[in-house]
Design a protein around this nucleic acid. Structure first.
Lengths: 145, 145
DNA sequence: AAGATGTAATTCACATGTTAATTACAAGGT
DNA sequence: ACCTTGTAATTAACATGTGAATTACATCTT
């Protein structure tokens, strides 16, 4: 097997694919002055309820040092709250605040419209298949080592 | 259409997929003290020959400000060279040096082995199909707007 | 030639990615 | 109680991502 060219390597293809998709969301996020990562944190907390930092980092695919900074910024802006866990001074439960929920709800319509536009261009079935294949790849690489 | 959960959103899936793949390459790059982005720059220059900064940035999927810093670092380490373009003082041709070529050749076997291992776990046909679908997605999103 | 406009590259400022080291606790063993 | 070991979170240091502003040239216009 030859070393793949940069025009057909999986890491590059995944990177470019993510870029073209995120390009559609960035203007929306910029208008509300939140970053892509802050947006992920908000959505994870909204979906799952309060989480400890480690679990939140895993679910949002953000490394612990980054999460520390993000939490700090979002707490100051009033989008999330933290509450120490009883009997363990290390941990804290992170939760989305009403303001955070309001932001998610405010962006929901535009978010749906963007996804619909992507599905229209790329194809809804293709979209589902791609998600399946990506999940399968993640599974095969993360478990089998 | 409901807003997709973070467990099945295209941006998150692409991000996670890239993470699990890059996890296999990072140790190799770390041993040679080069970053993922520097590695991309080297490979693009090796494949295509000398390029101007803008074209290199596009092909390596690196933003201009990042490329400026990367070029500076790699020039100092002797992996790439720059030559001003005649009749246009703004542009410069960036080229890989013999030391850069040597690094690529040194890493080639391990690189092939890593790709083979991924194909073995995920399936060669699945791999090809995934690349096709990603290219199709990139195409549909970058042209159609 | 001078000014307006466009383009390539860089610089700035700040957020995140990344690894290693450190701090703060918790739990277990002696 | 003390010490070791393990774990959660943070901090440190440096590289890159990102958008806005700036600089350095080119080119076009008059």
């Amino acid at each position: 097997m030859l070393p793949p060219s940069t025009r057909r390597s999986l890491p590059m293809a995944l990177l470019r694919a993510r870029e073209v998709i995120m390009a559609h969301f960035r203007p929306m996020l910029a208008r509300h002055d939140i970053t892509e990562q802050q947006w992920r944190v908000l959505r994870v907390l909204a979906e799952t309820g309060p989480l400890e930092a480690t679990e939140l980092a895993n679910r949002a695919s953000i490394l612990p040092p980054s999460l520390t900074r993000i939490i700090k910024a979002m707490e100051e802006r009033g989008f999330i709250t933290r509450n120490r866990v009883k009997d363990d001074g290390r941990r804290a439960l992170l939760a989305i605040s009403p303001a955070g929920v309001a932001l998610i709800e405010e962006l929901a319509p535009e978010r749906v419209a963007i996804y619909e536009a992507i599905e229209k261009r790329y194809g809804a079935e293709e979209h589902e298949r791609l998600l399946d294949m990506l999940e399968s790849l993640i599974q095969s690489e993360s478990t089998g080592g």
